[in-house]
Design a protein around this nucleic acid. Structure first.
Lengths: 220, 220, 220, 220
DNA sequence: GGGTAATCGAGACGGTACGTCCAGTCTTATA
DNA sequence: TATAAGACTGGACGTACCGTCTCGATTACCC
């Protein structure tokens, strides 16, 4: 866990505007990883609301200052931890969206995987926490969106674009809108817990988006 | 503001399972309203994260215990405050979904109004806060969903059902799925702030859902 | 326990100067006794510092207001409770100091009894508490001294006066001073716990005081 | 004020048996002195009963936790404050009891000074408060007795011993008893306020005690 | 014997302080 | 100079009681 060595320290999430930014070259990678791991463990154990910087420091065997030096809030720590987690899962950089030529199948495959991820609290807890925190804290939200969300949306968009170019979608298709029609309802159910999140749901959603709710009905 | 007199006290949000529940018949309506109003004011002024029970009590001119007696957390207060706010806006019970016979127009009208509500921070701040808090606290989330969200979704569903019965939608249309395809992307943009939330977006979304992204395209 | 029926309500201890004094003739003797008993029980169980009006009310099965109506503080309640306790022990009014003609023997007898009382926490706890509270609260202290202490000192003084008149003490003996030389050291040990309080100590004290007081007399 | 640098932290007064004791070597002497001074000032201003930890912290410009870290109660703070006060008055260690050869004169001189101290509320208020608190809280009482009271009693005892060795007191004189006959009545009047505390009273008391104790001796 | 005025049990109320937890800053000593 | 450790100021937490204030339900006196 906790992969790519020593990214730039927390650039922008915090309001702090550090009085004098620390020297990143002397940063202890050992501590950094320990902090990230501790944060992930703890958010799973006690939940985001009861997650404290002190507990992270204690669990990581690290001074509090070492956390404050490099991150501006527990949310920022958790964001980096989630990025590290995602990075570990896909070490060769960015994740590859399948492209078998069958758009519906590819989307279903990816969305089924997403459903599974959401069901795994180990992965879902920090993301849910970040989503919630980001909703309330615009600064964090922007960073979360930019670093975690957008890269994934872009993959969807790329796949849809390739489908549009292949003539599998109308040329005037609003790609962004379509992505959100896929991702929005899924995320909605996950966050709001209005109903269980299943593979069947994901597949029905893909079918509905690609087919259209009233598609061809009015026409006839 | 703060309408319907003395609903049952916080039934279920709190984990406390009160040692000895207070006597609701002797509850001070004056204090209850003051607390709800103060909570709404403050969440608008300082945001949810910096909202404190102490500040609410001070602003309302109330002892802290009077808040803890009737609510289990600041989130629970805010939920009741939002319900009161919604109740005041629509005193004659539940809001009426327009039904002009033109489904697309009706949906667009409602969703444009929703976009406007989301843009009004006075209304949006507490809802955003509750959504976030509910994502992290399942108990609160359930209550939030049940009391605020579901009633609204039901209205959408009713309207779609009436459309389906009128033959404007295919008879096998999954109403729930369709509702989520409308509400999900809108909520997603609002929460994640991935892109600005406009009337045009709402209308495009309605068209896409009713028409289908690739509707008729593949077919031909 | 809790004897003489319905004495005047708290005359003087409190700063309250009641807005409108209650009608003592309608006072519930049942409640009064229950309160006094509860206070004594509780002070024995939890100590004076953790004794609360609410606990007394709950234990006595009485509304808080019923206590506040008749007493001005927990100390005032405890003072009445102690008076009732003392009154019960000596129902026929004031206690009789022995007068066998042998001053030393009489004093030793009384002081041995006092040592025993001090050793009985049932009796000692409230008195110790009142002594302590009175030291800090002059108003209460005055009342405590006047109602509990002085009557006892007067008995000592009377006995010494009778001895002086019988020629067993020098005619210029300062009675008050002598009383305090007897009672002071005993109380000192009891309060300060500098050393154990024994019968032997009490007797040695009497001998030392009388040896001093009669010294010049014997000589001539 | 607030002299000797960094004595051991509150060893024994509290029931807490600290979960993990703080590192006394890193203690802030600045804060410690500020707390002690604030406590003394406040006890003089509002009295012991209305003295609060919060007020001490506020007056001292200190976090509450800093008080709770080093003391177990307001009484413990006040005890240290009194010790510091006493230590400041007599920096060269322990106070010297006069020994002019004239025992009665020496005792009178000291007891007159004690009467004056008791009359000075600046000094008397905390001592009175501690005496009262100690009467109710045995643990505190023991500490109070050991640290403040006994050292003074020992001085009396030493002076009396020297007098006994000089043949000014009978060789079988009970020194401890004699000390208590001097100190007990004085303290009794001071605590109980049964009568005014004057120089004349102190002198009469010394005469009475010495007249008694030395009576049979002088004769021969 | 019904009217009425007070006390009574109960407990909600506006407050104050409690003792605890953590945030974020600062200091000290290692390495 | 970055670190582990942890004391510091400060602020909010949730709880316990304070003393006051309604509420019916007795209860005792007066008409």
């Amino acid at each position: 866990m906790s992969s790519s060595p020593l990214p730039a320290p927390d650039a922008g999430t915090g309001p702090a505007a550090a009085p004098r930014s620390p020297d990143a070259t002397r940063r202890s990678d050992r501590s950094r990883r320990a902090i990230l791991d501790a944060a992930l463990d703890l958010v799973g154990e006690v939940g985001y609301n009861k997650l404290t910087i002190e507990a992270i420091a204690a669990r990581a065997g690290v001074g509090k200052q070492t956390i404050y030096r490099w991150w501006s809030s527990k949310a920022a720590v958790l964001l980096d931890a989630s990025l590290a987690l995602a990075g570990d899962a896909q070490p060769e950089g960015v994740w590859a969206f399948p492209d078998t030529g069958d758009l519906a199948a590819d989307l279903k495959s990816v969305m089924r995987a997403t459903v599974d991820e959401f069901a795994d609290e180990r992965y879902a807890a920090p993301v849910r926490a970040l989503t919630a925190a980001g909703a309330t804290d615009p600064e964090l939200g922007a960073r979360f969106t930019e670093r975690l969300l957008e890269p994934q949306l872009a993959l969807y968009e790329d796949r849809l674009r390739s489908a549009r170019e292949a003539g599998q979608l109308p040329p005037d298709t609003d790609l962004r809108l379509t992505v959100e029609m896929l991702v929005g309802p899924l995320t909605y159910r996950w966050l709001m817990r209005t109903a269980p999140l299943t593979h069947a749901y994901a597949e029905a959603l893909v079918d509905a988006v690609l087919g259209g709710a009233g598609a061809g009905w009015d026409k006839s």
